[in-house]
C-alpha cells in the first residue's frame, strides 16, 4: 500500500490519530455492505469483518491517492467521498498522508 500511515491533526496542530488507514473507524453498515459484496454474508464473523475493513481501506486509499495531495482538509466534501470511514467527528481537521 503506498500510504504507510495517516495522521489526523486538529486545528491546534495536535495529532489526534496516527496509524494505518485500516485502523480508522469504519462504519458498521459499510463493513456489512462490503461483507455482503465479498462473501454475501449478512452476519460476518470477525475474520470476514476484518477482511471487509481491509477491502474498504484499500478502496479509500485509491480515492485519497487520486486526489494527489499529501494533506487534505476534512471538509464535508471529503467526508462524503470517504463515506465508509467515520470522519464526521474530525470535521475541519487535516488528514496528512505518509506515503511510501
Amino acid at each position: 500500500m503506498p500510504i504507510k500511515k495517516v495522521s489526523i491533526i486538529d486545528a491546534t496542530g495536535k495529532v489526534v490519530f496516527k496509524g494505518a488507514l485500516s485502523s480508522l473507524k469504519f462504519k458498521k453498515e459499510s463493513i456489512q455492505k462490503a461483507s455482503i459484496e465479498l462473501f454475501n454474508d449478512d452476519n460476518p464473523c470477525i475474520i470476514h469483518e476484518s477482511y471487509a475493513v481491509e477491502h474498504l481501506a484499500s478502496k479509500a486509499e485509491q480515492l485519497i491517492l487520486s486526489l494527489n495531495k499529501k494533506v487534505l482538509l476534512i471538509d464535508e466534501v471529503l467526508i462524503q467521498q470517504l463515506l465508509d470511514i467515520e470522519l464526521a467527528k474530525y470535521l475541519n481537521h487535516h488528514l496528512e498522508l505518509e506515503v511510501k
Binding site: 500500500m1 485500516s22 475474520i47 476484518s50 477482511y51 481491509e54 484499500s58
Partner: peptide, 10 residues
C-alpha cells in the same frame, strides 16, 4: 497474518 494475506491476495 490476516493483513499479509489480504495484501498477497491483491
Amino acid at each position: 497474518g490476516l493483513k499479509l494475506q489480504f495484501k498477497l491476495n491483491q
